[in-house]
Amino acid sequence: MPRSELRTKTRKQKLSPEELSDTFLSHVYALPDGRKLDLCIQCGTCSGSCPTAYAMDYSPREIFAALRAGMLDRVLFSNTAWMCTSCYICTVRCPQQIKITDIMYELKRLGIKYGYTSPSTRSAAMARIFINITNRLGRNNESELMMRFYMAGRWGDAIKNAWRGAKMFFKGRLPMPISGREVAGLSEMRKIREVLERLEEQKAAEEVKH
């Protein structure tokens, strides 16, 4: 058992393994082509093609095996989804046309929502910071993103990358880390967000009923 499983935090609302599987399925079924998930034949094409499978606690194929065995919580506690780079090679190769990359995204979302992210990954922290910045400014600010990411416990990386970062800054390739809003239509973005967040919840709730 990967060590990361044993050290999960329980800050947020916890779901039982069954509830978790149901929630996951209802969300995936709500995605375009999501129902194809049931068609996995465990051929392993996805795992064999995945560039980062070697660094994942569980390989992509094992997600579908775990789901059937009622052990999806183990996958969520692991680093698997957060090692996915969204390269889509599994998706284009899957003989059953399962949109595996989209499912990886769903795992990340569930992990964030219910606090099941592996402590061995910092990518979830990165995602939260990114969203905070783009919601606030309308666009990304790479300097702020990296600084806040480093401050969230990656000082080693900060030191290692400082010289190269400084070079990029002086070449004009990094913005000032503090900037104001960059998009005039920020309020439009906020309104879109409010409506779609609500619809997202509604739709998943409907799927559970089916």
């Binding site: 979302r109 964030i112 990165m126 990114f130 969203i131 779609l196 967040e197 739709k203």
Partner: peptide, 10 residues
């Protein structure tokens, strides 16, 4: 690839 990791529809 990042926003999608937290909210799909948004």
């Amino acid at each position: 690839t990042t926003y999608m990791s937290v909210h799909e529809l948004v």
